[in-house]
Amino acid sequence: MHMPADEAELAEVIAATAVPLAVVGGGTRGVICAGEGLSTSAISGITLYEPGAMTVVAKAGTPVAEIEAALAAENQRLAFEPMDHRVLMGTTGAPTIGGVMAANVSGPRRISVGAARDFLLGVRFVDGVGTVVKNGGRVMKNVTGYDLVKLMAGAHGTLGVLSEVSLKALPCPETQATLVLHGLDDAAAVAALASALGSPYEVSAAAHDPQTRETLLRVEGFEASVAYRIQSLRDLLGGEATVEQDPTARWDAWRDVDGFAENDRDVWRVSCKPSDAPDLVARVDADAVRYDWAGGLIWLAVARGYDLRAALGAYDGHATLVRGNGFARFEQEAAGVARLTAGVRARFDPRGVLNAGLMG
């Protein structure tokens, strides 16, 4: 396992390699590519934090927990609440900010504030020939040509290896509460979530658990505003409902899909139009289901080797294998998209040495 201590050593390793490199951060997501291991975990540390500007710059191997602790001391946070994969995947180590950004890991709050990539202001990375590249900065600005900041978020290390990221933070809310609707079936729950998101009451997370028939709506902000919006949602949606005043633990567990951790099933995540979600779930033989993002994200636990993509058939979305073997992790791209992807990869990793084969 290569463990460069800084960006210069990282560039040397990539430039000198004659074989593919399997790039990891903290190694918590359990993704294993062919080739020699390359970990960025030693390239660590917060290099700049300006609370007044709500901007933090950190090296790629910096543990997410370290960044969260620094932000919390100033009553700030990473608004996109990235998932911790260790519970689901049974892995050890520590999630790193580079790994989070490389995979664009975004939690339940995505529906209200956006994805991880939307908080990424700038990046430094090493491309597939060992060249150090910098793009973006410490403030939001328009770009021309390649928007490498957005391109690197979600590329899973196939275009370059992140060495440093610049992020925008947000203030922590004064309080939060969750309205829990009881007894709704999947279709009624997704309809209720859509109504809530279409209301003026600023819902920050919207989810449904078919097993317990609990439908969850989180509201955050000033105490008086939260109380008003919770009651307004209760009046809008009707039915049996309760309110949880301190739902942090519930949403952390939901974010990490900890209910799927104890079984030995394959785990998939399906991105789709929220209104399509109940019908898609009805097409498959799943042992456990969770709806997040108001139905736009479905978590499914299925029998080992079950061909979920075949069971789903045609729909507007895609399925990603998170835990399991026997299938490609990502969907096969359409021909036109595949040509564009190949062109971009040829520009940034012409030798094909970075996480080869991971994304097709």
Rank of each mutant, 00 (worst) to 15 (best):
D264M: 10
M140I: 14
D307C: 06
E7I: 04
A15Y: 04
A79G: 12
F80H: 04
R250C: 11
G360F: 08
L237V: 08
G90V: 11
G93V: 08
R290T: 12
P20T: 06
P210L: 11
T341P: 01
S195A: 15
S163V: 07
A194D: 13
K150G: 05
I43S: 01
A303H: 11
H318L: 13
P210R: 09
E220F: 02
V337M: 13
E244K: 11
R265M: 13
D127R: 01
G313E: 10
A241W: 07
L340G: 07
E50K: 12
G114Q: 11
G99Y: 00
G352F: 10
S41G: 05
R345Y: 04
T28N: 01
V344L: 15
F330R: 04
G25Q: 03
S199E: 06
N142W: 09
V126A: 05
G25V: 04
S166M: 03
P20R: 06
A303M: 11
G317T: 10
E202V: 12
G52C: 03
I32D: 11
K150Y: 09
D235H: 14
D209P: 07
T96I: 10
A206K: 00
R329Q: 13
M359L: 14
L48R: 15
R213L: 14
L300Y: 01
C272Y: 01
T158L: 06
L197K: 10
